[in-house]
Nucleic acid binder design. Structure first.
Lengths: 215, 215
DNA sequence: TCCTAACGATCTACGCTGTATAGAATCTAC
DNA sequence: GTAGATTCTATACAGCGTAGATCGTTAGGA
């Protein structure tokens, strides 16, 4: 029973990696396993459940990044990079995480690790859950943007007509032409973003003034 | 021709709003317009093009938020809230933006407005494109998390067994039980996040030290 | 005024999707 | 050897996107 289920999950993940998420059909998975489509149902229940299980499987791959004995900075860095790598290896992952919010045990464990890191950083307890959501939203959103190509949209013609549209000029683009002309190094950009978020966390830990947030 | 296209778009958006994105089928849209499915094709080309056009249509709704004569803070605030409201009114919007990155003219204009705000804030030019991506990734990611229910996953049973799993304790959750027990006010949380990002932008504008970032 | 070309809409059909239902095959235990 | 459970197969249905052929209506030019 469980063997078969693992086998089915392996097949589904392989298809998603090779052909994309939309190629994951019950028939395709069944073919890969060497069985008829309906044979999958006793094992995985439904297609929705199969997708959930795929997310769960990926969560497991994130767990090794939770090695103890690290500073909160290292912990967040390692986790963020593990997640980004995961969404590069399996571009469908971030899509699914956003689309079907199931709480897998492993996901809860990852959340807890982030809680611990933020607490270790000195973030006030009431702010921790919010900052966790902000942190994970950013990491997942970045992965999804990369995977989905949102960042790259508009790559074509960066110094051409892009900064001047028929219906009016684009002053921002015009001033930044110089910096928009060469495409960014995404690895560097991710690290820079992460660095900024780290400083944001430090600031929250220092309880910087000018903040009306209640206890 | 263009009339028909607008009519088709209206129908598609209405269906997505009422029944969800997956209910937007060529047949359903055609029914709504009062026509056979194949009659849509001369007007919109394909289903993929229809979805792209839907995203474009939403981009137009974001433009009114670009009123001039505001401080950079107001500009970012208004834009972020307009986007969040859009993703609440049309929960399928954020999904599509992440899934199919097409550059609509209106989207470019929104990007430009963010560029201008960041420049007005005093952010060094080379940092502006990156911070724009970070800002929009956050706003869209937040909207998508809300719409997709990612934030709410695990709402059930917040003080029960959730902070203690069979395979081991969750120290982070345990320490935060008090703060995890009542569900957050998402509007407040969004504003708090926005506030933090604002401060991050200010810090970048002040060119704070301790930053190895090259010119 | 007639012919023609273009256009918008339709009908039919193909291969795909998830899955309900019913039946057949295989293995285990008594 | 037979009963029961488990696993897989076969068939079928309703829905999907869209290729291809067809048809009625309309607009332009001779």
């Amino acid at each position: 029973m469980t063997d078969r289920k693992e086998e089915i999950l392996d097949a589904a993940v392989a298809i998603a990696d090779e052909l994309g998420l939309e190629a994951v059909s019950m028939r395709a998975v069944a073919d890969r396993v060497g069985v008829t489509p309906m044979a999958l149902y006793p094992h995985i229940g439904s297609k929705a459940a199969l997708l959930d299980a795929m997310v769960g499987r990926m969560g497991t791959e994130l767990l090794p990044a939770l090695a103890p004995g690290q500073t909160w900075r290292e912990q967040l860095y390692v986790l963020a990079h593990a997640a980004l790598q995961l969404s590069r290896l399996h571009p469908w992952w971030a899509t699914l995480v956003f689309a079907r919010p199931s709480v897998a045990p492993d996901a809860v464990r990852v959340t807890d690790a982030i809680y611990q890191a933020l607490l270790a950083a000195g973030v006030p307890e009431p702010d921790v859950p919010r900052l966790e959501r902000m942190f994970s939203t950013f990491v997942l959103g970045y992965g999804l943007s990369e995977a989905g190509g949102r960042f790259k949209a508009g790559d074509a013609d960066p110094r051409g007509t892009r900064w001047m549209l028929p219906e009016g000029p684009l002053p921002g683009h015009a001033r930044l032409v110089r910096w928009l002309s060469h495409r960014p190094n995404w690895a560097e950009e991710f690290d820079a973003d992460l660095h900024d978020i780290e400083r944001l966390i430090e600031a929250k830990a220092r309880r910087e003034p000018g903040d009306g947030e209640a206890q």
